[in-house]
Amino acid sequence: MGISLGANQYGKAENRVVRVYRDTDRHEIVDLNVSTSLRGDFADAHVTGDQADVLPTDTQKNTAFAYAKKHGVTSPEDYAIALGRRFLEASPKASSAQIRVEQYAWDRIPVGANGSDHAFVRRGGAVRTTVVTVAGRGADEQVWVVSGLQDLVLLKSTGSEFKGFLEDEYTTLAETDDRILATSLVARWRYDSATGVDWNKSHDAISASLLETFATTYSHALQETLYLMGRRVLETNDAVAEIRFSAPNKHHFLVDLSPFGLENHNEVFVAADRPYGLIEATVTRDDAPPAGDAWLAVPSFL
């Protein structure tokens, strides 16, 4: 019986990198959670314990901090691409580097007309994400960028129905033509190129499209809503090849108030956290370039 080493990677997970820009009296803050990993010819490290080709995970951690200063963080995508290229430069046996970044937003504490120059409050809501994979070097280099957001909690109090579904002997769910639709959305979109993109502007535009479509479109089901959101992103953002969604259906059930002599006209609900429906979907541009390694080790769904 033959035994061989299969796919493997290694890196440093969840480096909490905070970069404060002090170029003026009005400071800027960028707060990141950075995970790095390398793939390549590291069989000796596993099979014989020889670490000669292994760039230590501690070095990866140090590089993440050093590049926050040396390269800067104009966007998570730009920073991650620079890190990926650096790791391939420093690790000859690596064939690809993947950088995963979560960015936590901070707002200025309201002081005066323009807010405090150097005091911030952590913003609730969605977390910006990116996963960058850099493979090859020089003319053979390929870069894939998957950006997105997670923990985007959305709710609409009307404009949603769910009826006409398949029923069998175990079906108890009642049809409704007016319900609360709520979810904690994860959305990730793949760019068709890593060049010529204004990462911050693109992220803001896509986020706005998702929110506007959710708010203004009548929903026959969460599945339809996700498709319409994805289609809108692709229609208005030429640089995006595909978008993937994972959306737990945050159920809100009408409370029976009749034992108390009260009527409940879609006013009082109980929010149930589990079990929940989990709806996932991909919307793809028909002429999108191949995904390559874009989704490799991306926190996965589908």
Results as ranks from 00 to 15, higher is better:
residue 129 T to W: 07
residue 172 T to S: 14
residue 88 L to P: 14
residue 174 A to P: 15
residue 110 P to A: 02
residue 135 A to W: 14
residue 111 V to H: 10
residue 159 G to M: 04
residue 80 A to D: 07
residue 116 S to P: 09
residue 92 P to D: 02
residue 91 S to Y: 08
residue 136 G to E: 08
residue 151 D to Q: 13
residue 154 L to N: 06
residue 117 D to V: 10
residue 131 V to H: 13
residue 128 R to P: 07
residue 80 A to E: 07
residue 95 S to A: 13
residue 149 L to E: 12
residue 74 T to V: 14
residue 160 S to D: 01
residue 112 G to F: 06
residue 122 R to A: 07
residue 96 S to K: 08
residue 152 L to F: 15
residue 87 F to C: 03
residue 90 A to V: 08
residue 124 G to W: 04
residue 112 G to W: 07
residue 168 D to F: 10
residue 145 V to D: 05
residue 104 Y to I: 06
residue 161 E to H: 00
residue 157 S to L: 05
residue 172 T to D: 13
residue 157 S to T: 12
residue 141 E to W: 12
residue 150 Q to C: 11
residue 160 S to C: 04
residue 88 L to G: 12
residue 162 F to I: 04
residue 85 R to F: 04
residue 102 E to S: 12
residue 89 E to H: 03
residue 149 L to W: 14
residue 174 A to F: 12
residue 86 R to D: 15
residue 96 S to Y: 05
residue 90 A to D: 15
residue 136 G to Y: 11
residue 125 G to K: 07
residue 103 Q to W: 04
residue 171 T to P: 02
residue 159 G to W: 03
residue 98 Q to P: 08
residue 107 D to E: 13
residue 116 S to R: 09
residue 154 L to F: 00
residue 132 V to M: 10
residue 105 A to F: 02
residue 144 W to M: 08
residue 77 E to K: 11
residue 101 V to N: 06
residue 122 R to H: 02
residue 144 W to G: 09
residue 101 V to E: 03
residue 157 S to G: 08
residue 161 E to T: 05
residue 148 G to L: 06
residue 147 S to K: 11
residue 161 E to A: 08
residue 137 R to T: 11
residue 99 I to P: 15
residue 111 V to Q: 11
residue 87 F to R: 00
residue 90 A to T: 09
residue 150 Q to P: 08
residue 90 A to H: 10
residue 170 Y to M: 00
residue 105 A to V: 04
residue 77 E to L: 10
residue 83 L to K: 06
residue 74 T to G: 09
residue 101 V to S: 02
residue 155 L to R: 13
residue 97 A to S: 11
residue 149 L to R: 14
residue 156 K to R: 06
residue 105 A to W: 04
residue 124 G to V: 03
residue 140 D to Y: 01
residue 74 T to L: 10
residue 71 H to Q: 09
residue 159 G to S: 06
residue 70 K to G: 00
residue 98 Q to C: 02
residue 140 D to S: 09
residue 123 R to T: 06
residue 154 L to E: 05
residue 98 Q to F: 04
residue 172 T to E: 14
residue 98 Q to W: 05
residue 101 V to C: 05
residue 79 Y to A: 05
residue 91 S to V: 07
residue 94 A to T: 12
residue 97 A to E: 04
residue 122 R to S: 06
